[in-house]
Design a protein around this nucleic acid. Sequence first.
DNA 1: ATAAAGGCTAAACTTAACTTCAGGTCAACA
DNA 2: TGTTGACCTGAAGTTAAGTTTAGCCTTTAT
Lengths: 123, 123
Amino acid sequence: MEYSIKQVAEKLNLPISTLRYYDREGLMPLLKRTESGIRKYSETDISWLELVCCLRNTGMPLEEIKAFMELCLTGSSTGEQRKELLEQHKAFILSQMNMLSRSLEMINYKLANYNEIGIFHII
Amino acid sequence: MEYSIKQVAEKLNLPISTLRYYDREGLMPLLKRTESGIRKYSETDISWLELVCCLRNTGMPLEEIKAFMELCLTGSSTGEQRKELLEQHKAFILSQMNMLSRSLEMINYKLANYNEIGIFHII
DNA sequence: ATAAAGGCTAAACTTAACTTCAGGTCAACA
DNA sequence: TGTTGACCTGAAGTTAAGTTTAGCCTTTAT
């Protein structure tokens, strides 16, 4: 099954302009076109895009995602490097989660103050 | 106790340029200066900055932080609004954490594949 | 008294990640 | 056959959040 850019945009909830941008930036090296130049996304393209979104949403820069992709394209010899890259990003995500929960604590503390009658000091 | 911009930068681990930028953007309305115009940060300024960093690190735009600050300055009548704003941001943080843990799962799944001998397919 | 270290400003520059625009092509259907 | 809707490109514009630069002033230590 193949999908038009519009269908992919709806499926992944991304703007069409972003899909074109990712392609332009070389993040979709396997993406095929019709003779007349229209993009046709395969299931594999979509899986790859899902991974791109996952990495992007968790703060990996497109440059790095591209580097990862290039490792994938190079073949099985890069397995260790790819693993290393994902491990690093995993550590990054864990530290993000950590920061979020510390911030959450701070905010809960503020909110608790707001709930005590009359405690509305500055900050 | 009062602090110079350099001391604050070290304490909060922020570049001096960022501290000046925050001030320039109106995020430090209570910040005092010496006669000759040098910033002197009070303990309160530092607490406020810590909150700013907490909100900023968790994805709140400076514009919104500023809006929150202005509510704080307006006084106790804005208690409900401030509470509402923090509650919303709390919900945002929770959804962030959610996304991070879903992404973590995906990455763990990829990593598990890398650990199985010979499974180094594309993507 | 003077030099070094630290402070100040306004304005320009940077970066990532998109989005918008202008102008053109393609495909399907009434 | 023509018009409508979806697609294309290259180039320019946008936005947030800073950073850098240039030129100048102040404070402190020698």
